[in-house]
């Protein structure tokens, strides 16, 4: 049986190695919400769904299955805060649970890597999904310490919701999971043109052809700029990275003057649950260094227990 209210925290690459603030925020947030977060020792890159799947699908599945096995040995579901990691792990898990042949193939190769055997006994979860559907906008209220007053440009990212047949979370064309969740936090979601499209980073494009990636991103940023939000919110560190480096690149190469803070879902939720803004690591980010949340304290931190 999988342990209840316990998660193996899958870190991935970008969050621990570039944005440690997201990691600390997530830990803070989940523990406050009453979950136990266990570290996944020896976990590797998920590996990224766009790049590594493109090179060799089997190896991609094996490496992902290895990560799942680590959690299986711990008897806990995996939680991740990255769309890419979610994309890989959930898709491989889903695929191997259905395809017996590939399961055998993967298990054969797993033996070479160490003492691993994929069983298919756990599930892979995304923090956004846990927040949106398990904690829910109806349940978050009691944990809140402060509310923010902000107009937010929400960027879902692609791999959180699509392909719908595999993820089964929300509609791909008009999702409302995050909008609904952020409402009690005081954040107002602003609609902008082509809201649900890609940031341009995925699929290995950022590595393959940075300029192409930036062209796609430029349009995205233009659309966001048109509605002048307070900050950009995303549930994915890779999109996060793209929004950060992208703004910087556009400022340098295209003469724009963007300075929108990019905030991860965990960072915002942790902040509203009483984490110090310093601890969310916003000051280490490239964009919006000077941004300070416009917040309204609603209760003392001690009241939340």
């Amino acid at each position: 049986m999988v342990k209840e209210k316990t998660f193996a925290f899958f870190l991935g690459c970008i969050m621990p190695n570039r944005y440690p603030g997201i990691e600390s925020s997530t830990k803070f947030m989940m523990e406050k919400l009453g979950y136990t977060i266990l570290p996944m020792e020896r976990a590797s890159c998920c590996p990224a769904p766009g790049v590594f799947r493109s090179f060799n699908k089997v190896d991609w599945m094996v490496a992902a299955a290895r990560n799942i096995c680590i959690a299986e040995q711990m008897d806990t579901d995996i939680i991740t805060v990255c769309n890419g990691c979610f994309g890989t792990l959930q898709e491989v898990d889903h695929h191997l649970k259905e395809n017996e042949d590939h399961k055998v193939l993967v298990n054969e190769k797993l033996k070479k890597l160490g003492d691993y055997e994929y069983k298919g006994s756990i599930n892979v979860r995304h923090a956004a999904e846990v927040l949106g559907y398990e904690v829910g906008p109806w349940g978050i209220e009691e944990f809140l310490v402060r509310k923010v007053k902000a107009r937010v440009a929400i960027h879902y990212g692609c791999h959180l919701l699509k392909p719908v047949s595999v993820r089964g979370l929300d509609s791909a064309e008009k999702p409302s999971m995050l909008e609904d969740f952020l409402e009690p936090l005081g954040a107002e979601s602003v609609d902008f043109v082509e809201k649900y499209t890609c940031c341009g980073a995925g699929g290995g494009v950022k590595a393959f052809d940075g300029n192409a990636s930036m062209t796609i991103f430029e349009e995205k940023m233009k659309n966001i700029d048109a509605v002048k939000p307070d900050f950009i919110l995303s549930p994915c560190p890779f999109c996060h990275l793209q929004f950060e480096t992208g703004q910087d690149w556009l400022n340098k190469n295209k003469g724009t003057n963007y300075d929108y803070p990019v905030i991860h879902l965990s960072q915002l939720v942790a902040y509203c649950m009483g984490m110090d803004q310093k601890q969310t690591g916003l000051q280490f980010q490239m964009m919006g260094k000077d941004y300070i949340f416009q917040s309204e304290e609603i209760k003392q931190e001690e009241e939340v227990s």
Binding site: L11, P16, N17, E23, E41, A43, P47, F284
Partner: peptide
């Protein structure tokens, strides 16, 4: 990936920042 187990390996600045935020210097990964 082969050398570090990560597609985006850690760098010194991040190590510093991790410490500052109260995290382990290195994440418990491969």
């Amino acid at each position: 990936l082969g050398n570090t187990g990560h597609a985006v390996p850690i760098n010194d600045i991040t190590k510093e920042r991790r410490k500052e935020l109260g995290l382990d210097e290195l994440p418990p990964t491969l």
